[in-house]
Simulated scan of single mutants.
Amino acid sequence: MKKEPLFVALSNQKGGVGKSTLTVLLASYFHYCIGKNVLVVDCDYPQHSIRIMREWDVKNVEKNARLQGLLVEQFGDTGRKAYNILSSTPQQAKKAAYDFIDRSDIGYDMVLVDLPGTVNTTGVFQSIINMDYVFTPVTQERMVMQSSMTFVLAIREYLNCHKEVPLQGIYMFWNKMDKRVSKELYNAYMTILRSLNLPVLDTTLPRAERYNKDAGQNGQIFRSTLFSPSAALLKGSNLDLLAGEIEKITGL
């Protein structure tokens, strides 16, 4: 009997906070670096940006001998094939994942779900409460914070009234942290979040150019569905720290 995979979603009702990018980075880190069996379900209709990123990655490898060599080397070192990416609507996310897993010989550790940037999209709310855990990236922009707090508070209120749903917790974490932004602003937001008893991860992710380094560029690779984040760029990115916190919280 196959083990039950952990369902984790990155979700926020505000767009532009980095959900899809972080879904790819975490999937690649857990799958290629840590050796977890990861399945990704791309529910970000209609763009399905992660599926498109995979198609773009494959095309780049096909026409680039250097990338082909890197892919062969990675497989030789890890024995890890590329993780699968499914396209789905939000309401069908778990069904699509289970249908795929039931046909697979692999026992999956984690299913990462990328949801649309608005909770009003059909099926998003239902999909959220049927995850095991939800992680919500936030930035220091005022509109993002207001929207994010409203979103997390609404989910928490629902959980308090519906103990039977699968969702065990929703956690916020800081993304795209700009060192030029006042530390006082960050401290003020943290004071508000603590007063509302909203859980926030210790890890903060910096705003950095490395998050845009993909397989189409020369040099080191950070964001890719086919490659692990390079060790040089992983250092100081805090991605490994974020993954470690997620592992600890979820018991992955």
Rank of each mutant, 00 (worst) to 15 (best):
K3V: 11
K3A: 12
P5Q: 15
L6Y: 05
L6R: 07
G16C: 00
G16I: 00
V17I: 08
G18Q: 05
K19A: 14
S20F: 06
S20A: 13
T21V: 15
T21W: 10
V24L: 15
V24C: 12
L26A: 01
A27H: 08
S28T: 13
I34L: 09
K36W: 13
V38Y: 07
L39W: 02
L39E: 08
L39K: 04
D42M: 06
C43K: 03
Y45H: 10
Y45W: 14
P46I: 07
H48L: 08
R51A: 01
R54M: 01
D57P: 00
N60S: 07
V61F: 10
K63D: 11
N64S: 05
R66Y: 12
L67A: 01
L71Q: 07
V72R: 03
R80H: 06
K81E: 10
A82I: 15
N84Y: 14
N84W: 15
Q91S: 09
Q92R: 08
A96Q: 06
D99Y: 04
F100P: 09
I101V: 00
D102N: 00
R103C: 01
R103M: 00
D105C: 00
G107K: 07
M110F: 02
M110P: 07
G117C: 10
V119S: 12
N120L: 10
T122E: 11
G123A: 14
G123I: 11
Q126G: 15
I128Q: 05
N130M: 12
Y133S: 02
V134A: 02
T139F: 13
R142S: 12
S147T: 14
S148W: 04
M149H: 03
L153W: 08
E157T: 14
N160S: 12
P166C: 03
L167E: 02
I170S: 00
N175F: 06
K183V: 11
Y186E: 11
N187D: 12
A188D: 14
L193G: 01
R194W: 12
L196S: 04
N197Y: 02
T203V: 15
T203K: 05
R207W: 08
R210D: 13
Y211K: 06
Y211G: 05
N212R: 14
A215M: 04
G216L: 04
G216N: 09
Q217L: 15
N218I: 11
F222Y: 11
R223G: 05
S224I: 08
T225Q: 11
F227E: 07
S228Q: 02
S228I: 05
P229D: 12
S230G: 08
A231H: 14
L234H: 13
K235Y: 15
N238G: 13
L242K: 05
E245N: 03
I246E: 01
E247K: 03
T250V: 10
T250I: 04
L252N: 02
